[in-house]
């Protein structure tokens, strides 16, 4: 088992004509709950999408290693098959596809049971609804985390699990994230947030600050609480 699950070196990424990530370096070791903090537009979602290989996110320089394998030029399908997974900040609505349809496909691959996943995330009432249609913010996040629980990834990348979510849902989402850490053979996870509300329920081991497309600082949990008290301005 490699000590470093994910390592990113000198990464620069363009999206359209804009350079969104600049010379970024990041390591996710084993046994690490890593929080990636940054204000809106800092490049957090871009970084996660680049790591998983989303089309349209063009790597200009740098390399991404996942479990010691260079996946920089690998397509998203490959990276997901290797155990990377992304919880989207805002999943799209899927017309005519019910939550149960998606979970059933994922569970067939991941070996879970739909009921267990649904119970864990308290989404039993949403199973027969069209995916994303008319869901509240909290329901959307719970369903999204449920898809990751069904995938059972080796490393989950979670984008803004606490944005637009009511307090009750945050607790459930945090429970789901803890399960994802449990499922990970590395016992690691990457959580992106700009509010850090979720940190009340799942404590960070490492906190990294992303500003203007670059990691400007990584530190221990204390850094997160500092940001929560004083914001990002004092860190520049």
């Amino acid at each position: 088992m490699p000590n470093i699950v994910l390592s990113i070196e000198n990464l620069s990424v363009s999206v359209g004509s804009r350079i969104a990530i600049k010379d970024l370096n990041l390591e996710v070791p084993n046994n690490t709950i890593l929080y990636l903090l940054g204000p809106n537009g800092a490049g957090k979602s871009t970084l996660l999408r680049t790591i998983i290989g989303y089309p349209g996110y063009n790597v200009l320089t740098g390399v991404i290693h996942f479990e010691n394998e260079d996946v920089t030029d690998k397509p998203m399908e490959y990276r997901v098959s290797k155990g990377l997974a992304l919880a989207h900040q805002i999943p799209p609505k899927l017309v005519g596809i019910r939550v149960i349809d998606l979970l059933s496909t994922l569970c067939k691959r991941g070996g879970c049971t739909i009921n267990d996943v649904a119970k864990e995330m308290e989404i039993e009432h949403l199973l027969y609804r069209e995916f994303g249609k008319g869901f509240s913010g909290g329901e959307l996040k719970r369903v999204e985390i449920a898809t990751l629980l069904a995938q059972r990834p080796r490393l989950a990348l979670v984008d803004e699990p606490d944005t637009g979510v009511d307090v009750d849902s945050i607790e459930i989402v945090a429970r789901g994230l803890k399960k994802l850490v449990e499922f990970s053979p590395h016992k690691s996870i990457v959580i992106v947030t700009h509010t850090a509300f979720i940190a009340r329920y799942i404590e960070p081991d490492t906190t990294c600050i992303l500003l203007n497309g670059s990691i400007i600082r990584c530190g221990e949990a204390e850094l997160l609480y500092k940001v929560m008290r004083h914001g990002f301005k004092g860190l520049v």
């Binding site: 989303y54 998203m76 992304l86 994922l106 995938q151």
Partner: peptide, 9 residues
């Protein structure tokens, strides 16, 4: 939507 599902495997 296509990319979302690909990201789910």
């Amino acid at each position: 939507e296509i990319n979302y599902l690909v990201s789910k495997g």
